[in-house]
Write a protein that binds this DNA or RNA. Structure first.
Length: 422
RNA sequence: GUGAGUGUAGCUCAGCUGGUUAGAGCGCCGGUCUGUGGCACCGGAGGUCGGGGGUUCAAAUCCCCUCAUUCACCCCA
């Protein structure tokens, strides 16, 4: 066994980066709570069916990106490639939808078998919220506002919000037919991959980056003209609400989202600083999803945001520098010989028990080196014991900023430090 | 899944068209200073040159395969 590395597309999060993750996680908890959402934690893996039935056959996620395996009981299991379906599954399993509204948020890893590149990993991290029960546009608006508040809270300023409406079960099929009819006529002018998508997932052609496709799409029918009256109203109300909150959203009729379950509102947030994987955030309404999973007809709207990408952005904007939220060491214990170390251990414990962040160098390095480490750790005091102190039954407490030293009896060290740090 | 680039010390990298014991800076350890920090000087440890195979008298260097990584396609958070 040699040179073991993290599996392709995964990565270890080491200090000091791990403290940036902790800060991000705290911000997510705080902002979601502020908007009235409570955390739900679901398993990392689910029955494969949970995803196949909701995300949809024909989507890339289900067809080629899931980590699926048969467990020892013969069940088909998949690592979750997203978290909306598991949240709905859990809500149904525990009858949470009996008491609406239901507002949940989550954060954690997701898994997709893709070729890694900048901002795209096989184990990625997302947070998101789901709001069930509200059919009106206020919920859509709230979720978009929440997403932007999150961007603000982590210090990301350079981004673009785009929204669209995909229509509902009444009006979307007509658009789909019209689009397929048009694209079939123009099939010869489409890119190869889009000709395939025409059969499997025609809406996806709408957000193709291919120049050939773009040209064809210029003359394609748009969903806007097919929206039924209530969908039109919903979309107009949403835009009004956003405007009333001072939120600027670009209407992009080509947004379709990668998952089958979206209805009406869809939105995305992009950033120019991310390279090809420029999407930070995507969400929308999914009024048919709960019912499709065997629950009561329940409207829902949600968002998912990539935590990996958020951190890339907050780092590139310099905001990460302020994000060293790691607890600073307050006291460094310095033992100069074995016997002193033995005597200092219970004192260290007493200090820690008082709620003071303290640590001790166990490597028996020379005094200079230990003091240097103490200084770098940010500690305010060093507690030093060598032969002199040991024979006298006390320690030297040194203020690392002023270098002032005092001798304190061994039994009084914790009280003395507590007082000085108060 | 497709294409291109990159893998040399813990980190960042040098090593020309193959040629002795593979180098630097930072970091780490020690000394100058038998017990008072950030500096300076001196010394030291640390390398399967990603892995495997091939060509050659000789491979970090050339060829093939493989793994990892980066970027793009695709897709998406």
């Amino acid at each position: 066994m040699k040179n073991l590395t993290a599996p392709r597309g995964t990565f270890d999060i080491l200090p000091p980066e791990s403290s940036q993750w902790q800060v991000l996680e705290r911000i997510i908890d705080e902002v979601c709570a502020r908007f009235g959402y409570r955390e739900i934690r679901t398993p990392i893996f689910e029955s494969s069916e949970v995803f196949v039935r909701t995300i949809g056959v024909g989507t890339d996620i289900v067809d080629k990106e899931m980590y699926t395996f048969i467990d020892r009981g013969g069940r088909s299991i998949s690592l979750r490639p997203e978290m909306t379906a598991p949240v709905v599954r859990a809500a149904l399993a525990h009858n949470l939808l009996q008491t609406l509204p239901l507002k949940l948020y989550y954060r954690g890893p997701i898994f997709r078998y893709e070729r890694p590149q900048k901002g795209r990993y096989r184990q990625a991290h997302q947070w998101g919220v789901e709001c069930f029960g509200a059919a009106g546009p206020e919920a859509d608006a709230e979720i978009i506002a929440l997403s932007l508040e999150m961007m603000r809270a982590v210090g990301i300023v350079d981004y673009r919000l785009e929204i669209n409406s995909l229509g509902c079960a009444q009006c979307a099929p007509a658009f789909r037919e019209a689009l397929v009819a048009y694209l079939s006529e123009q099939a010869a002018a489409l890119s190869e991959t889009s000709r395939e998508r025409l059969q499997r997932n025609p809406l996806r052609i709408l957000d193709s980056k291919d120049d050939l496709d773009r040209a064809v799409l210029a003359g394609a029918p748009t969903m806007e003209r097919f929206l039924c009256e209530s969908c039109q109203q919903h979309f107009a109300d949403l835009r009004f609400l956003l405007e009333s909150m001072g939120i600027r959203a670009l209407h992009n009729p080509h947004i379709v989202r990668g998952l089958d379950y979206y209805t009406r509102t869809v939105f995305e947030i992009h950033s120019v600083a991310l390279g090809a994987q420029d999407s930070v955030c995507g969400g929308g309404r999914y009024d048919g999803l709960v019912q499709a999973m065997g629950g009561p007809p329940t409207p829902g709207v949600g968002v998912a945001m990539g935590m990996d990408r958020m951190l890339m952005l907050s780092r590139s904007s310099g905001a990460a520098a302020e994000q060293d939220g790691q607890t600073r060491l307050q006291v460094a214990f310095v033992a100069l010989d074995d016997e002193s170390a033995r005597l200092l251990v219970p004192v260290l414990q007493a200090v820690r028990a008082r709620g003071i962040a303290a640590d001790m160098d166990y490597l028996r390095r020379k005094l200079e080196r230990q003091l240097r480490a103490a200084g770098e750790s940010g500690a305010r005091f060093a507690v030093i014991m060598g032969e002199d102190e040991r024979t006298a039954g006390d320690v030297t407490i040194q203020d690392l900023a002023t270098r002032a030293r005092v001798r304190v009896g061994l039994t009084r060290v914790d009280a003395e430090l507590a007082q000085r740090l108060a």
